[in-house]
């Protein structure tokens, strides 16, 4: 939440990720299979980070891969999975069922409210729901508050200031100004509520170019910026590329067993010393993912 005023925040990915510590509360940007900070996730795994407490809204391969790598102690998202298309998150499910993962399942609204409290510097804010839901039983830290004006009893949720927020954007400049397209999901809230924002971008360009597209997250909230093309792969980063459904299906299939998940990690994450080698390994489909804008037929083809 402190402002970051360095003029040049460009860092190699490896150095940027070294700011994340074991046990940190880590906010993941993006949602479902869109704009997930996958290069940062892969680097966290390469650096063998442990005991992370992940927070987010609806997530997929980002959380599942970190869980598969044994990097996670607590999961506090509103959803982890691959929707009806590819189904439940295999590693997340396996770890939860083995009792190896603390499941603190949350809700999009609750998470938003907790971040707003941190942004405003107040200790809590109320929500009207959650009462009656067993989600409340997963959160002994939630309280209750009686409205001094109406007498209504509401659930009080504590301010949430993640130690670090990981955000992937389309464009950025060396100061850390970021541009990305809607849906922003919780990224703007994470950016102002978190103690540190670590950003990756498809391309670092001039400030004028970022400003012309519109600044989504301003430089003073961002601690570091690293240029990583295809840094959201296999999730999408429009307008650059669509999500890689084939690769996601390959992952879900592999991760159905612990051995399969380890084989995937060995091949795509630990077996690639950096993101350049990762891109090389998956180079064949990568350019195909940019073809979405050629025609409706080409776009449909990517999802068939």
């Amino acid at each position: 939440m402190t402002f970051f005023l360095n003029l040049d925040k460009r860092l190699p990915l490896e150095e940027a990720v070294s700011r994340v510590h074991d046990g940190d509360v880590v906010a993941l940007g993006g949602g479902l299979s869109a704009r997930l900070p996958m290069a940062l996730v892969r680097e966290l795994i390469r650096q063998r980070r442990r005991e992370l407490h992940l927070v987010g809204s609806a997530h997929g391969i980002d959380v599942d891969l970190l869980v598969a790598a044994g990097a996670v102690a607590v999961c506090e998202e509103s959803y982890v999975g691959f929707e009806q298309d590819l189904g439940l998150a295999p590693a997340y499910r396996r770890a939860a069922q083995a009792g190896e993962l603390h499941i603190a399942e949350s809700c999009c609204v609750t998470m938003l409210t907790q971040l707003r409290a941190a942004e405003a510097g107040v200790p809590f804010l109320p929500v009207r729901g959650v009462k009656g839901s067993d989600i409340r039983r997963l959160h002994p830290e939630y309280g209750e508050v009686t409205c001094p004006f109406t007498g209504e009893v509401l659930v009080a949720v504590p301010a949430l200031s993640p130690d670090v927020a990981l955000i992937h954007a389309s464009l950025g400049d060396r100061h850390g100004n970021l541009h990305f397209d809607k849906p922003y999901v919780l990224d703007e809230r994470f950016a102002s509520a978190a103690k540190v924002v670590i950003a990756t971008v498809e391309r670092i360009v001039s400030t004028e170019e970022v400003a012309a597209e519109g600044i989504t997250v301003p430089a003073h909230l961002v601690a570091s910026i690293s240029e990583v093309p295809f840094g959201a792969h296999p999730s999408s980063c429009y307008p650059e590329y669509a999500y890689d459904r084939t690769h996601l299906a390959e992952y879900v299939d592999a991760a159905a067993t612990a051995d399969g998940a380890n084989a995937y990690l060995e091949r795509y994450v630990l077996g690639t010393p950096d993101e350049q080698s990762y891109r090389k390994l998956v180079s064949e489909p990568l350019e195909r993912l940019r073809s979405w804008h050629e025609s409706t037929a080409a776009w449909k083809e990517l999802f068939a």
Partner: peptide, 16 residues
Amino acid sequence: PKVKLGGGGGGCNLAA
């Protein structure tokens, strides 16, 4: 859990 499902998204507030 016997089976961990995906999770509720915004449901536990929105359903109210």
